[in-house]
C-alpha cells in the first residue's frame, strides 16, 4: 500500500484517536453536545494538526533536541491563534459555542503526541498525510458522539428535528454534562468488547495511549509530562524518587 494512503487509513481506522487510542478526551467530552459542534471542533483540530505536522517535520533538523517541546508548543500555539481568529471572523456562532475550547487545542494531546511520535522523525509529505488521517479520524469520532448525544438529547441531527416531539420526549440530560460522561463510558465499554473480540481473532487493536488508559507508559507525551503515571508501579517509583530527592536535598545545599 502507498505510504500516504497507509497513513490516512492508520489515522481514520487502525489507530483512530477517539475510538482506539482514546486521546484528546477533554474536547471529546466538552464540545460534543451537538453534531455540528463536534464537526467544527474536529475540523479546526485537523487544520492545526496538518499545519503543525507540516512545520515541525520541515524544521525537524533545525530544532535542537533539548528545546523541542517548547518549540513545538510555540508552533502549535501560533497555529491555534490563527485558527481562532479565522473562526471568529467567518463562523462567529460556532466559535462562540466552542468558546475556550478553541485555544485549548494547544494542550490537546493528539497534536503534541503526533508531533513527538511522528512528525519530528519523518519527512514532510507523510507527516501531512498523518495529520490529515489523524485529524479526520478525530473529526469522525467527535461527530459520531455528537450525533448520538444530539439525537437522544434533543431528537435532532445537525439541528434538524428527526424524532417528532409528538411521541419522543428528549432525554435532555444527554446534551448536558452528565450525558457526555455516560456516552463516553458506553463507548469505552463497547470498545473493550471489540478489543477482546479482535484479540481472540488474533488481530489485536492498538492499546489506548491517552490518559484514559490510566498508565502513561505508552503516552507520546511522557517526554514532556515527566511525572508519569502515579497509578500502579508509578506510585512506587514516584515515592522512591521523592525519597531520593529528599535525601539528596541536604547534599545539594
Amino acid at each position: 500500500m502507498n505510504k500516504n494512503v497507509e497513513r490516512l487509513y492508520n489515522g481514520l481506522i487502525k489507530e483512530n484517536p477517539t475510538f482506539v487510542l482514546m486521546l484528546g478526551m477533554c474536547p471529546t467530552l466538552a464540545v460534543t453536545s451537538s453534531a455540528i459542534n463536534g464537526l467544527g471542533m474536529g475540523l479546526s483540530t485537523t487544520v492545526v494538526l496538518v499545519f503543525s505536522n507540516l512545520l515541525i517535520s520541515a524544521f525537524r533538523k533545525v530544532i535542537p533536541n533539548g528545546v523541542r517541546m517548547p518549540a513545538f508548543i510555540v508552533i502549535v500555539a501560533s497555529l491555534v491563534t490563527m485558527v481562532q481568529f479565522i473562526m471568529n471572523a467567518y463562523t462567529p456562532s460556532l466559535s462562540e459555542s466552542l468558546g475556550v475550547y478553541i485555544p485549548l487545542i494547544v494542550v490537546n494531546c493528539i497534536i503534541l503526541g503526533r508531533a513527538e511520535s511522528y512528525a519530528s522523525k519523518n519527512p514532510v509529505i507523510p507527516s501531512i498525510f498523518d495529520g490529515i488521517g489523524m485529524g479526520l479520524g478525530f473529526t469522525f469520532g467527535l461527530t459520531c458522539i455528537g450525533l448520538i448525544r444530539e439525537l437522544l438529547g434533543a431528537g435532532q441531527i445537525f439541528g434538524f428535528q428527526i424524532l417528532s416531539l409528538e411521541w419522543f420526549t428528549p432525554i435532555t440530560i444527554f446534551v448536558m454534562a452528565p450525558g457526555a460522561f455516560l456516552v463516553l463510558a458506553c463507548l469505552v465499554a463497547i470498545m473493550n468488547i471489540v478489543r477482546a473480540k479482535m484479540e481472540a481473532k488474533g488481530k489485536p487493536l492498538a492499546a489506548p495511549s491517552g490518559c484514559l488508559s490510566g498508565d502513561c507508559s505508552g503516552c507520546a507525551q511522557s517526554a514532556m509530562c515527566t511525572g508519569r503515571s502515579l497509578s500502579k508501579e508509578g506510585a512506587a517509583s514516584a515515592k522512591a524518587t521523592a525519597a531520593k530527592n529528599a535525601a539528596n536535598a541536604p547534599k545539594t545545599e
Partner: peptide, 30 residues
C-alpha cells in the same frame, strides 16, 4: 525543592504532571 523541602516532598511528584493540564490554561483564558 530548595526552600521548602517538606512541602516539596508532599507536592513535588505531582507538579510536572500539571504542566500539561488543560485546567491551568483554561483558567487563565477564562
Amino acid at each position: 525543592k530548595k526552600n521548602m523541602p517538606p512541602l516539596y516532598e508532599s507536592l513535588g511528584v505531582y507538579l510536572p504532571l500539571i504542566t500539561t493540564n488543560c485546567a491551568v490554561l483554561g483558567v487563565a483564558l477564562t
